[in-house]
């Protein structure tokens, strides 16, 4: 039976992983390869790297990181942040990424999603949707949640599926950073609206939230950053908890 996935997310800038990483006995907290290796050993099903580099000067550093990680860690790697054109997708895939996540550029230029998925296959194109509740619906935001687009999140999800996205990474801006759990209503609404897998993101504060994301939100995968980085919970611990609650996981 297909397992629900747990995906730790690593923020990368200037070639280093940022955010307070708190692995026991980790010599260098910012070394992407060492962090990726630890997550791999703990049973992470995939890893997502988010390039939060603001300047394009540093942009190519993520390529070296992916190359180094891909040479040692043999689970799927997704990279997002700053993907603007098909050439960016190609460079990341060549460096060893298995999937590329497209966010703001998908809104600016939806054709990019179609061109990239036609060329490299839907399986490697993830569309990231940042969404916030506005009135009685959810709206899509870009530029790290700062810019409203006027797009309805559910309609947008369907459009991205039709253009060839193989997976959707759905982040609730309302919940992100709150530790109050996923926006289950939003997750479920999008998961029911499309046939492609949904990764739920934004708001995880404890292990029950992961269970709820799968059971109530109908997510196919759950992504979390801080609960793993700060050492509150291990990935292996999260999986055991999910299994105890009747969720199929890879142990």
């Amino acid at each position: 039976m297909l397992a629900k996935r747990i995906i730790p997310c690593l923020d990368v800038t200037h070639g280093r992983v940022v955010k307070g990483i708190n692995f026991v006995e980790l010599k260098d907290a910012g070394d992407p390869v060492e962090i990726a290796r630890r997550y791999n050993e703990a049973g992470a099903d995939e890893l997502t790297f988010l390039d939060i580099t603001a300047s394009s000067d540093d942009r190519d550093l993520i390529l070296h990181i992916i190359e180094d990680v891909a040479a040692e860690v043999f689970i799927p790697l997704t990279v997002g942040g700053g993907v603007r054109e098909v050439g960016d997708v190609q460079r990341l895939l060549n460096a060893g990424a298995d999937k590329v996540s497209i966010n703001t550029s998908a809104v600016m230029n939806p054709q990019l999603v179609k061109d990239a998925s036609d060329r490299y296959g839907s399986q490697c194109i993830v569309v990231a949707i940042d969404s916030k509740r506005v009135g009685d619906h959810w709206e899509v935001f870009t530029h790290g949640g700062r810019k409203a687009t006027g797009l309805d999140a559910i309609e947008w999800a369907k459009k991205m599926e039709s253009l060839g996205a193989g997976e959707l990474l759905l982040t609730s801006m309302d919940r992100d950073g709150t530790k109050s759990g996923f926006d289950l209503e939003l997750t479920r609404a999008i998961s029911d609206a499309v046939d492609i897998p949904i990764i739920a993101s934004g708001g995880v504060g404890n292990l029950q939230h992961l269970v709820d994301g799968v059971k109530e939100g109908r997510a196919d995968a759950v992504l979390a950053a801080s609960i793993f980085h700060f050492g509150e919970y291990g990935v292996d611990e999260a999986k055991r908890y999910m299994k105890q609650h009747g969720i199929e996981v890879r142990l």
Binding site: L2, D45, G166, D192, P197, I198
Partner: peptide, 22 residues
């Protein structure tokens, strides 16, 4: 096939088949 993609509890199964399976 679209019509077959649900588990024995009636939950929708996504395509692509993505992730770790036995």
């Amino acid at each position: 096939p679209h019509e077959a993609m649900h588990d024995d509890q009636g939950n929708k199964l996504k395509v692509p088949h993505m992730g770790w399976n036995n």
